[in-house]
Write a protein that binds this DNA or RNA. Structure first.
Length: 468
RNA sequence: GGCCCCAUGGUCAAGUGGACUAAGACACCGGUCUUUCAAGCCGGUAACCCGGGUUCGAAUCCCGGUGGGGUCACCA
């Protein structure tokens, strides 16, 4: 997202590249999910696997020959060498180093391998990996837009693998080759990659390519301050969507994680964020992800977004819940709009919104058990509800003020408190104890349904409540 | 453990040597409105990690601790 904001805010191009060189972890169809999630969030790219571009292909799995050639260049220049060590040998070395309390570093023993030794290995059919020769003196300096100058001693690095023995590049090699060939000017990524950067700079230099500008942005941590991951605390974009979060809310929230416009504004539109975003204002420290604030932002959007937008966002949820059909008529849409307007201020997610609106569309709701205990128990309630339905039956123009007037009149006649009639009525009409103003509900539901539901509730109470 | 990054309320964050008696937001707690629940409005609790310097003056600069995080793969 910060890449998108930076690129678009500075007249650059935002490029999507799929780094899919780990065939073991390949998931069929995952690409489509990535595209859909990014698009839903409003992050559209200028070049990518689906859209194409002048520097494709944009899937690393389709660029294998390029990496092979680049690795070959380093091999013949003596800047890299084949390594015949087996994974088991390497693991043993690492284990030994760990036991001895040393940093696990590759010994470099294949570096000086004589031609005959190599030939012998090759003859035995051992396929080598390729390692980059890393200088053991001096320093590699990362000039980071956010962290400033970060110095790494080369002696702490080792000859890392750039090509696996199966001929596929490792991440630190492939991304450098691609960044160079795709003319990437800015690499903006999470801080977890900072320690990869000196390695990548070494590759850029070995290959003779210019080093791009780096910016390592703060990580997002789970509430327990651990790294957010698939297995720990992370929620996928698609999950947020299905939980009823609006993309504008997620976009807004994510922008505020690690960045702020510098003043008190928090509710920011996409355009405002695009206009205001600057890497200078990105903080250095990791941010803990707080779903409560996201949810609050979401409620703000549900509450304030234009009617048509709310309709568009809510419709899929209403359809899925079976509240509206695939192609609602004009009258149905009109009704939906009125329902949305009366419940929107109460909902924090589109799922809640749908749930709160259900009784406006279907009659088969159950009465809230706590509400039944509280409002249906008194002996006179069925009679009260019948009187209510009679009073409403008299109302000609079934609007909010007219129905309320009729009810107030009845309340006065009966000499009861307003709540004594209103609460049972709400439960009878909606099955709930909470919701929008009762007369908004009544007017919206319409006379026919109100009368039916009131009578039905009266009957239900008589049949189901223990008689005194 | 080595290397690297970071450090303002529970969380997100303003703050870049004096305007700090340290903004604002979420959450929490009150109040208000109301037939209920929200929303709205008003108010409250709550923070500069510790220790040394530098300076007339430090949340802000320096050093050292401590704490948190990241990373050390033929994963990305």
């Amino acid at each position: 997202m910060f890449n998108f904001l930076f690129a678009r805010g500075n007249g650059g191009r935002f490029i999507l590249r799929l780094e899919d060189t780990d065939f073991e972890r390949h998931v069929e169809g995952a690409d489509e999910g990535i595209f859909a999630s990014l698009k839903w969030l409003g992050l559209d790219w200028d070049e990518g696997p689906d859209t194409g571009g002048d520097y494709g292909p944009y899937r690393q799995s389709e660029r294998l020959e390029i990496y092979r050639q680049e690795a070959e260049r380093l091999l013949s220049a003596g800047l890299a060498y084949p390594c015949y060590c087996t994974p088991q040998e390497l693991a043993a070395e690492r284990e030994e180093a760990r036991k001895a309390g040393r940093a696990p570093r590759y010994s470099g023993r294949c570096c000086g391998l004589a031609a005959e030794a190599r030939a012998a290995k090759e003859a035995k059919g051992v396929r080598p990996a390729v390692r980059l020769k890393v200088p053991q003196t001096g320093q590699t300096v990362v000039e980071d837009l956010i962290r400033g100058t970060v110095v790494f001693e080369n002696a702490t690095l080792d000859d890392f693998i750039i090509m696996k023995s199966n001929g596929v590049p490792t991440y630190n090699f492939a991304c450098v080759v691609d960044d160079a060939m795709m003319k990437i000017t800015h690499v903006i990524r999470a801080e977890e990659h900072l320690s990869n950067t000196p390695k990548q700079i070494l590759v850029f230099r070995a290959l003779g390519y210019p080093v791009p500008v780096f910016a390592h942005v703060p990580m997002i941590l789970a509430p327990d301050r651990a790294k957010l991951s698939k297995r720990h605390g992370a929620t996928g974009v698609e999950e947020f969507r299905s939980q009823g979060y609006m993309p504008e809310a997620l976009f807004n929230y994510l922008a505020l994680l690690g960045w702020s416009p510098g003043d008190e504004r928090e509710l920011l539109s996409r355009d405002e964020i695009l206009r205001e975003f600057s890497l200078d204002a990105v903080s250095k420290h990791a941010a803990v992800y707080d779903v409560q604030k996201l949810t609050w932002l979401n409620s703000q959007y549900i509450n304030t977004v234009p009617q048509a937008r709310l309709m568009e966002a809510a419709l899929p949820f209403f359809r899925a819940a079976g509240l509206v059909g695939e192609a609602p008529s004009a009258a149905e849409e009109e009704y939906l709009v009125r329902v949305l307007e009366t419940v929107r201020s109460r909902a924090r997610t589109l799922v809640e919104l749908t749930d709160m609106a259900a009784y406006f569309f279907r009659d088969d709701f159950a009465y809230d058990p706590k509400g039944v205990q509280k409002f249906f128990k008194s002996p006179g309630v069925p009679e009260l509800l019948r009187r209510g339905s009679e009073a409403l039956a008299e109302v000609e123009s079934f609007g909010v003020t007219e129905t309320e007037a009729a009810y107030r009149k009845l309340i006065a006649e009966l000499g009861v408190s307003g709540g004594a009639l209103i609460h049972p009525t709400r439960l009878a009409l909606t099955g709930r104890t909470v919701g929008p103003g009762l007369f908004d509900v009544i007017a919206l539901l319409g006379k026919k349904r109100c009368l039916e539901r009131l009578r039905r509730a009266a009957d239900w109470i008589e049949q189901n409540m223990p008689q005194e």
